[in-house]
Simulated scan of single mutants.
Amino acid sequence: MRTELVGKAEYIMKCPYCGHPDTRVIDSRPAEENNSIRRRRSCDVCGKRFTTYEKIETIPLIVIKKDNNREQYDRAKIEQGVLSACYKRPVPASEIQKTIDEIELEIFNREEKEIPSSKIGEIVMDKLMALDPVAYVRFASVYREFKDVNTFMSELKQFLE
Rank of each mutant, 00 (worst) to 15 (best):
R2S: 11
E4A: 01
L5T: 03
K8G: 00
Y11S: 01
I12A: 08
P16Q: 10
Y17P: 01
C18D: 08
T23S: 11
V25M: 06
D27P: 00
R29T: 03
P30E: 11
P30R: 10
A31D: 02
E32T: 10
N34G: 11
N35H: 15
S36T: 02
R38Y: 03
R39P: 03
R40G: 03
R40N: 05
R41I: 09
V45W: 09
I62H: 05
I64R: 10
I64Q: 08
K65L: 13
N68E: 10
N68A: 07
N69G: 09
N69A: 12
R70E: 13
E71T: 12
Y73H: 09
D74E: 14
R75S: 02
R75V: 03
Q80A: 13
G81D: 02
V82N: 02
S84I: 00
Y87C: 00
R89D: 05
V91T: 06
P92F: 12
P92K: 08
A93R: 15
K98N: 13
I100N: 02
D101A: 13
I103E: 04
L105M: 14
E106H: 15
N109M: 03
R110A: 14
P116V: 10
S118L: 12
S118N: 07
I120N: 03
G121P: 04
V124F: 12
V124R: 08
M129R: 15
L131F: 07
L131E: 07
D132P: 02
P133H: 11
V134H: 06
V137A: 15
V137K: 06
F139A: 07
S141I: 07
E145P: 00
K147D: 08
K147Y: 08
D148A: 08
N150V: 09
T151V: 09
F152D: 00
M153E: 13
S154G: 04
L156G: 05
L156V: 15
L156Q: 01
L156I: 14
F159G: 07
L160W: 03
E161H: 11
